[in-house]
Design a protein around this nucleic acid. Structure first.
Lengths: 361, 361
DNA sequence: CTGTTAGCGCTTTCAG
DNA sequence: CTGAAAGCGCTAACAG
C-alpha cells in the first residue's frame, strides 16, 4: 500500500503541507478560496487518500471501535453487531471485528489487539462466565481491560461486567434484565400451564444462562410452584437438540403411562435462548412429537430470523440492535456525564409454541 | 488513548529504542538474552502495548482487511463474514467491517475509508448490480477500487466483478456458479413436477438474481419446458412475503376452478434466495395454504439457521463460509501466482418443500 | 492567512 | 551486537 502524500499534493499546488492539510482535512481555520481550490484539484488529480494511520498517530485518536463477539454468524450477535455498526457510523467511526467463541483468553488477545490499534472504544458482547476453568482467563482479560481503560480507552460490556474488572473510569455495563424477564415469562406460563416445568440451561457459570434460570425459578416460586428441573447443556442449537431427544423419550414414556392411568400432563420446556429452544423443538419433532400438543416450549431473545418457525416460538423479546447501539454510544461519549441512558427493557411474547393447556388425547 | 511508548521501555531497560524494538517486535536480529530479558520485563512492568498505527506507518502495512457487506445481520452475509474472519485470523490480520445496504455510493465510501486506513486488502461480498440508477455509483466505486489497486491494494469480490472495474493487478473475483446451479435445480425439479413454474426474483439488474433466474430458465428449457413466469420484488424476506400473498390468491382461485374442472396442477415456486423463499412460504401459510400440498417451493443459498423450518426447504447449498475464506485468501496472497484456488461449487439439496407430485384432493 | 518547526511512536539503515 | 539518526505522513503550535 503506497499512495500520494500530503506533501506531494502541497508541492503540486504550490503551498505548504500545513495549508494543504487545513483545506483537505477539517480544521478550524479555512484557507483562502483560491488556494483551497488549487489544493483540492491537486489532490484530485493525484488521487490523494489521506493516511488515517498517520492522522491517528498525530492526533492520537483512531476513529476505531472494537467489537468482540463469540461468533458473528450467530444471529444473536449479528443483530447486536448491526446496532454497533449503525451507532459507529453515526459517530464517524469504523468497526473492528474480533470473534472469540467466548474464550476469555482470546478475548484478552482481542482487547490487546484493539489497544494496539488504539481503538477509541471497545464493545464486548457475549455472555461472561464465572466457570472455574475460565478463572485465569477472566483475570487476564480483566487486567488487559483495566490497562486499556487506564490508558483512556472506553469499554462497554453487554450483560454482565467482566469478572474482576475494577476500572471505574471508562468502564460501562449495559445491563440486560434477564432475571426479571425470565421471571415474568415463568409467571405468564404458569398462569395457563399446570404441568411439570423443565429448564434447558447452558453450562453453570454462564451469567446469562444462570440469570435466566434463576429468574424463571423465582417466577415459578412467586406463583407458589415448585422449582423446575434443570438440565444443562451447550449454549447452542445442538445442545438444545440433544436435550430435546432425551426429553422426547421421557415424554413418550409418560404418555404411554398416561394411556393406562388417565393422567394427561404436558411438560413445559424453557430453553434459556431461542436457538436452544429451536434445537429442542426440532428434536421433539424428529421424535414424532408435536408442539404444543405433546409439550410446550419457550425460548429467550426473540431472534428475528427465527420468527417464521412453526409453531411460532414463545420467547422474551430483547431489543438486540438497540443494545448494540446503546453499548456503542455509552462507549463513545466524550467522558462527560451524558444523559442517563434509557435502561434496556424487553417483554414476554407468548406465541403458539406454548398455546393453552389442552390435554393430550 | 495514551500508553507507554517504546522509548519509555527502552529508557527503563537502559537500552536504545532500536534495541527495544528488536526484542519486543519481531526482527531478524536477536539481541543478547540478558538485554532481551531486561527489555521484556521493563515492557511488562510498564504495561507496554505497541502502537500498531505507528508500526503500520513505519512499515507501511497495516494488518487490516476491510470487509464490505450489505447487512451483517443477514445470515447470508454473516456466514461469509465468519469465513472472512477465520481466514483473517490465520493471516494475523484484523477485520474492519462496513455495511452499505448494497448502495454503490456507500461502498465507494467504504473503500475510501479502508484505503485511508491502508487496509492490506478488501473483500466485497454482496450482489453487484447493473441497474440504471446504480450507473453512476458503480462508476465511482470502480474508480475508487482502481485507485486502491493501483496503490498496491488487493481486492476480492464475491460473485461478480464490479461493473466497470478494470484493474488487472490485485483484483480478484470469487466466482459462484449461480447460473449453473440454478439450472441443475430446475432440471431436478422438472423431473418430478409437471405443473406451472413461477420464479420470485429480485430487481432486474441484480447480477446474483439475474444469473439464478437465467440458469433456472435454461434448466427448464433443457428439459423442453416453457420458461417460467417471473415476478420481481425486493431481494428480502418481505419481498418474498408480498409475492407469496399474491400467489396464494391465485392458487386458491385455481383450486376453486379445479374443483369443478377436475384439473389439479400445483405450481412450483423458485425464489432466488432462501430468505425470499421463507417469506413466500410464510405468506402461503398465512393464507391457509400448505406446502408441499398446495404448492411446492425452493430457495437458494441453504442458510444454516433456516434448516429447522418446516417443511424443510429445498434449496441449493452454497459453501458460504468457504467463499468468505477463499476471498480473503485470494486477497491476502503475496502477489505471487499461488496455487490455483479450488473453484467454488455447490449442490442441489431437495427436501420436503418440493416433495413428490401428489395432486391436491 | 500561510509557512516553519516539531514531534506522534516505531522501524531501519548505517555507523560504532 | 548495540546505538544514533533519519524518516513513515500528518497535525499543531508558533512565527511571519
Amino acid at each position: 500500500m503506497v499512495a500520494s502524500t500530503l506533501s506531494e499534493v502541497a508541492r503540486l499546488a504550490g503551498v505548504s503541507p500545513a495549508t494543504a492539510s487545513r483545506v483537505l482535512n477539517g480544521s478550524a481555520r479555512k484557507p483562502g478560496p483560491d488556494i483551497a481550490e488549487r489544493v483540492r484539484s491537486a489532490a484530485e488529480s493525484l488521487g490523494y487518500v489521506p493516511n488515517a494511520q498517520a492522522q491517528a498517530l498525530a492526533k492520537s485518536s483512531s476513529g476505531l471501535i472494537g467489537l468482540i463477539v463469540h461468533d458473528i454468524a450467530d444471529p444473536y450477535f449479528a443483530a447486536i453487531a448491526r446496532g454497533v455498526q449503525e451507532a459507529a457510523r453515526e459517530q464517524g467511526r469504523m468497526v473492528l471485528l474480533a470473534t472469540t467463541a467466548g474464550a476469555p483468553a482470546d478475548e484478552r488477545e482481542a482487547v490487546a489487539a484493539f489497544a494496539a490499534r488504539r481503538a477509541d472504544s471497545i464493545v464486548i458482547a457475549g455472555s461472561r462466565s464465572a466457570r472455574p476453568e475460565d478463572r485465569q482467563g477472566n483475570a487476564g482479560l480483566a487486567a488487559e481491560l483495566d490497562r486499556y481503560c487506564r490508558n483512556g480507552g472506553q469499554v462497554a460490556v453487554v450483560g454482565h461486567g467482566v469478572v474482576g474488572a475494577a476500572s471505574t473510569e471508562g468502564y460501562h455495563v449495559v445491563t440486560v434484565p434477564n432475571e426479571e424477564l425470565a421471571a415474568k415469562l415463568a409467571a405468564e406460563l404458569a398462569a395457563s400451564h399446570h404441568g411439570h416445568f423443565v429448564i434447558i440451561g447452558g453450562p453453570a457459570g454462564l451469567f446469562t444462562s444462570d440469570d435466566r434460570i434463576r429468574g424463571f425459578q423465582r417466577g415459578l416460586a412467586d406463583t407458589a410452584l415448585p422449582p423446575a428441573e434443570i438440565i444443562r447443556t451447550e449454549f447452542t442449537r445442538s445442545g438444545g437438540f440433544d436435550v430435546g431427544i432425551a426429553l422426547a423419550a421421557r415424554i413418550k414414556a409418560s404418555q404411554a403411562a398416561a394411556n393406562t392411568s388417565g393422567d394427561t400432563k404436558r411438560i413445559c420446556i424453557f430453553a434459556v435462548n431461542d436457538v436452544m429452544a429451536i434445537g429442542a423443538a426440532a428434536a421433539l419433532r424428529a421424535e414424532g412429537l408435536r408442539i404444543p400438543r405433546d409439550a410446550i416450549i419457550a425460548g429467550f431473545d426473540d431472534i428475528e430470523s427465527l420468527r417464521d418457525f412453526r409453531p411460532p416460538l414463545s420467547t422474551v423479546h430483547l431489543p438486540l440492535e438497540e443494545i448494540g447501539r446503546q453499548a456503542t454510544r455509552r462507549a463513545g461519549e466524550t467522558a462527560g456525564e451524558n444523559a442517563v441512558p434509557p435502561a434496556i427493557t424487553g417483554h414476554v411474547t407468548l406465541r403458539r409454541s406454548t398455546e393453552g393447556a389442552f390435554p393430550a388425547p
